[in-house]
C-alpha cells in the first residue's frame, strides 16, 4: 500500500502491463499484453473496433471491476505494485488513475460542483475556489465559463463538457489520465482543442488515449500501441513504438496494412 502512495521515483514507466489476459466470462477479450507506459508522455492505443482497446484501458484503473464476468490474469504494475493484488483498494487506484470517457458525462450539477465533487469525496480540505479555477485553467476552459460557474454543466457544448470532464479529473490530482476515445463525439474544432490540451497536460501527467482515429494518434501522441484481433476475436498487441517510427516505418505487416487503410 505504501508503495502506491509514495511520490514517484525516477522510474520512467508510469504503469506497466505484464502478461495480461482479460476475459469476459469464457470469452477472452485480450490476450497476453505487455505494455510499458512512459511517464509524462502521451501513449495512444489504436486498432479496429472490438479489438479490446477499451478493455485494456479500463483494466488500468480497475474500471472493469463493475462487470461481474470480468476476469484478469497477469499483472499491472503501478509504482511496482500489482494493482490487482487483493490488498489494493480500487477506489484509491481510480483517484490516482483518472478516466475521461467516450461520451462527455458531466454530472447534472453546476460547473463548479462538477469539479468540486471529486475533490471533496477524496477529502480535499484546501481552498475549493482556487482548485476549481486552477483545474479549469489547466483544462483551457476557464476563460469560457468563469462568469457562469453556477450554470448547469449540461448547458455547455459537447466540447466544453468534455474539457470539463478533463478538468474534473485533474482536480483529484491523478498521476495518469486514461482517455477512451474522448473526441469521438466532438466536432473537429473541439477535437483540436482537446488535442492541444493533452499536449499541455503531458508535461505533468501521463496520458493514455484510445482512439480509432489514426491521424489523431499520429498528431497527438508520443508512443503508439497497435492492437488487432485474432481469429478467435481475442485482442492482441501487434506493435508498440515511438509514434513517428510506428507510422513511418512499421515493423509488422499487419500494422502497415492498418495504417495505410487496407483494413479495419
Amino acid at each position: 500500500m505504501t508503495a502506491l502512495t509514495s511520490t514517484s521515483d525516477n522510474n520512467s514507466f508510469a504503469i506497466e502491463a505484464r502478461n495480461v489476459h482479460l476475459h469476459y466470462g469464457s470469452f477472452r477479450a485480450v490476450k497476453d499484453v505487455n505494455l510499458q507506459i512512459k511517464a509524462r508522455k502521451i501513449t495512444a492505443i489504436i486498432g479496429p473496433s472490438g479489438c479490446g482497446k477499451s478493455t485494456v484501458l479500463r483494466a488500468f484503473n480497475r474500471m472493469n471491476d463493475f462487470v461481474p464476468s470480468f476476469k484478469m490474469e497477469g499483472e499491472i504494475l503501478f509504482h511496482g505494485k500489482n494493482i490487482y493484488d487483493p490488498d489494493v483498494d480500487p477506489v484509491q487506484i481510480r483517484q490516482m488513475i483518472g478516466m475521461v470517457f467516450q461520451k462527455p458525462n458531466p454530472f447534472p450539477k453546476s460547473i463548479y460542483e462538477n469539479i468540486a465533487w471529486g475533490a471533496r469525496v477524496n477529502g480535499f480540505k484546501g481552498n475549493m475556489d482556487d482548485l476549481v479555477e486552477e483545474s479549469l485553467q489547466k483544462a483551457a476552459l476557464w476563460e469560457e465559463v468563469k462568469d457562469n460557474l453556477k450554470k448547469n454543466a449540461l448547458t455547455l457544448s459537447g466540447g466544453q463538457q468534455q474539457r470539463l470532464c478533463i478538468a474534473r479529473t485533474i482536480a483529484v490530482r491523478p498521476e495518469i489520465i486514461l482517455m477512451d476515445e474522448p473526441c469521438s463525439a466532438l466536432d473537429p474544432i473541439a477535437t483540436l482543442k482537446i488535442e492541444e490540451l493533452m499536449r499541455d497536460l503531458s508535461s505533468s501527467y501521463t496520458i493514455i488515449i484510445v482512439t480509432h482515429n489514426m491521424q489523431q494518434a499520429a498528431r497527438a501522441s508520443d508512443y503508439t500501441a497497435f492492437f488487432t484481433m485474432e481469429e478467435d476475436r481475442a485482442g492482441v498487441m501487434v506493435e508498440y513504438d515511438i509514434t513517428s517510427h510506428l507510422f513511418v516505418n512499421p515493423k509488422k505487416k499487419q500494422t502497415e496494412d492498418y495504417i495505410s487503410g487496407r483494413y479495419g
Binding site: 500500500m1 502512495t5 483498494d89 477529502g123
Partner: peptide, 21 residues
C-alpha cells in the same frame, strides 16, 4: 505536483478507511 494537494498520503489513507467503513 502532488505536494500542493492538501492532504498527505498518510491522512489520505485514514480518510479512505473511514469512507469505506
Amino acid at each position: 505536483m502532488k505536494n500542493n494537494f492538501n492532504f498527505s498520503p498518510a491522512s489520505g489513507l485514514e480518510v479512505l478507511k473511514r469512507r469505506h467503513r
